[in-house]
Write a protein that binds this DNA or RNA. Structure first.
Lengths: 342, 342
DNA sequence: GCTAGCACTCAAAGGAGGAGAGTGCTAAAT
DNA sequence: ATTTAGCACTCTCCTCCTTTGAGTGCTAGC
């Protein structure tokens, strides 16, 4: 659709704005492009590119700046053809080489590393709980009124929930319920638990009430989105960029960052496609995000996608570096999780 | 040391600056104070107060603004004599009335509430693990190479750590080690575990190596400060205040907020005194905090201090509201934890 | 189709001037 | 010995104006 020369010019404008943050004019463009073409010719091309919606001028006597559509073109044009530098690869591999770290720590550090390497805010979503299977279930008496249910899954996750007792339940009953539940539930997927135990069986023994409550408690854990934790890192980087202009916008965004609910919804929606996604400015459905860009990609254990890692930064972020970084970290994280699991 | 009139004037200047954020001059001061005294007289007093270091002028024809010392005087003068409004008390009590929430959720919400009520950033430190006693210990086989150790404490905390196996260990050995450890450790305080098992006994059975590793793993959990988690809320509020001036300072501070290590050290140091502490501007030892004020107070379970809650905001925060809010929330949290425990 | 030349526009930076707030000092009043 | 009125002075903030320079679009000629 765009002839060769227009492509070169457009890419140069985007590249310039990403690196310098300042509009560029026809003269500098003519020099740096070295196409044997005069500024006047470039002005004609720029004017056409503006007409097509790829560029705009902040004001009439400023240079050109990419629109979101311009970034989109740029990103599409470099798809696949970007490479990570060796030193960055090494930094990433180093972080992941220490394998004895537990999952949550690993994810938090992934988030920190990602934000540092890309100078953006990073979001890492923990593996989804639903797909885990249960290894062991504990019922521990905390007080006369409360029992703590603890479930341990095959991926090493541990979740807990207090259960309030009604009436007298003695230590023997609790043990009995625990033994029953373990017998029935071990090896089952967390999302099939509710079906795993028939009502009729439950009637049969003394601590049935407690066992029922425990099963409901597992349902509660699954239904609370909270339990799909988001690890946020590097929010400071967002401040560094916009400096003075969009203060209010950043405030809104950071507000959302504190409610994990919002982030989860957004990322789930974005990642239906199951591959790396770039959402630039207005392409984001959520209004408060439309001044920013999002780069997100899933990660997997074995063949199964379990979570996502992503990055939020200004629309003028350095896509050519950010995209391969996000990609490589996701792949490395997947490989590490594979190894940890078995 | 300050005569009555100077006190009144100083307090009025501080109060004005806290509420309006703008320097105040002798004229408005004369009107609002209503002491039957002319602006000229007040000017003399202001000049003396400035000489004593309580006030300063941003520039020669601006009004007066408190120094950190001025705030200090103000805070000392209102100590004890501030009350929380009934509606705020009610909001706090409402949050804590829903008792079935688990500890971590409760602390996170405490942090959010605190930041919302005071328009500052809030920091809540989880109860210290050392003082917990052990209720139950699980060893769960995750893969051929790893066993996950999970400890459940009397306060309902659950901590985990993967243990790497060396050589063959079969399921029976793991069970044996778990049974042994539970027998020996249940009811013991986490910080006395290392002494609880004699070297000599360990030699006696097959899975001794695993048991030893488990005990070391507990030591690791305790020594990693990370496990004393900090719940941070409302960092956005810091941005709202300084708007344009101290951007760099805020960036530094937020950077530190992401390393929990820094926060923990600071709060530990501050709270040796075991009572509510206000550190204003330069009174803070950490340089990046010297443009802000900190209000921190311990909370307890029973008679024992277990953690701290605190607030970081601009030096011109509304101490008369913030202090009683922090205080009341700490007391309410303590009471709630008491009830949960027994 | 390209380019040189030119008039034009507009943001940014700098300066001049006035308004207003607030001060410190002095001398008189209490 | 305090207090106060009066006054000159200082300095920020705002507005208005000018200049500068970057960058454009258009036109006419190559």
């Amino acid at each position: 659709m765009l002839d060769n020369r227009k492509q070169k010019i457009l890419k140069a404008v985007v590249h310039n704005f990403i690196t310098n943050g300042v509009p560029i004019g026809s003269k500098s463009l003519a020099e740096s492009l070295n196409l044997g073409i005069s500024p006047a010719t470039i002005r004609n091309e720029l004017s056409k590119l503006e007409g097509m919606g790829y560029l705009y001028q902040p004001h009439v006597s400023a240079g050109r700046v990419p629109t979101d559509l311009g970034y989109r073109y740029y990103v599409d044009s470099l798809s696949g053809r970007t490479r990570l530098r060796e030193e960055e690869k090494r930094a990433i591999l180093t972080l992941f080489s220490n394998k004895t770290r537990e999952l949550e720590n690993l994810l938090q550090e992934t988030s920190t590393l990602l934000s540092r390497l890309t100078s953006t805010a990073a979001l890492v979503i923990a593996p989804r709980l639903r797909r885990n299977t249960i290894k062991h279930l504990d019922l521990v008496e905390l007080s006369e009124e409360f029992v703590l249910m603890v479930i341990i899954t095959d991926t090493g996750r541990v979740e807990k929930k207090p259960i309030r007792l009604e009436g007298k339940v003695n230590a023997g009953d609790i043990e009995e319920a625990q033994a029953f539940l373990n017998m029935r539930l071990q090896g089952k997927g967390l999302d099939e638990l509710e079906d795993a135990v028939e009502e009729s069986e439950l009637g049969a023994f003394k601590a049935a009430g407690l066992a029922t409550k425990a099963i409901f408690a597992i349902g509660d854990i699954l239904s609370q989105e909270k339990y799909e934790k988001v690890f946020v890192g590097g929010t400071v980087n967002l401040l560094r960029y916009l400096e003075e202009d969009g203060m209010a916008r950043i405030e809104n965004l950071l507000d959302h960052f504190e409610e994990q609910y919002f982030l989860l919804n957004m990322l789930k929606e974005v990642l239906r496609s199951n591959e790396l996604v770039v959402r630039i400015g207005y392409e984001n459905l959520y209004e408060d995000l439309q001044a920013f860009s999002l780069v997100a990609t899933p990660y997997a254990i074995g063949d199964e996608t379990v979570g996502t890692i992503s990055v939020v930064g200004p629309t003028r972020m350095d896509y050519a570096r950010v995209i391969p970084t996000v990609d490589f970290i996701a792949k490395t994280l997947s490989r590490t999780l594979d190894m940890l699991k078995g």
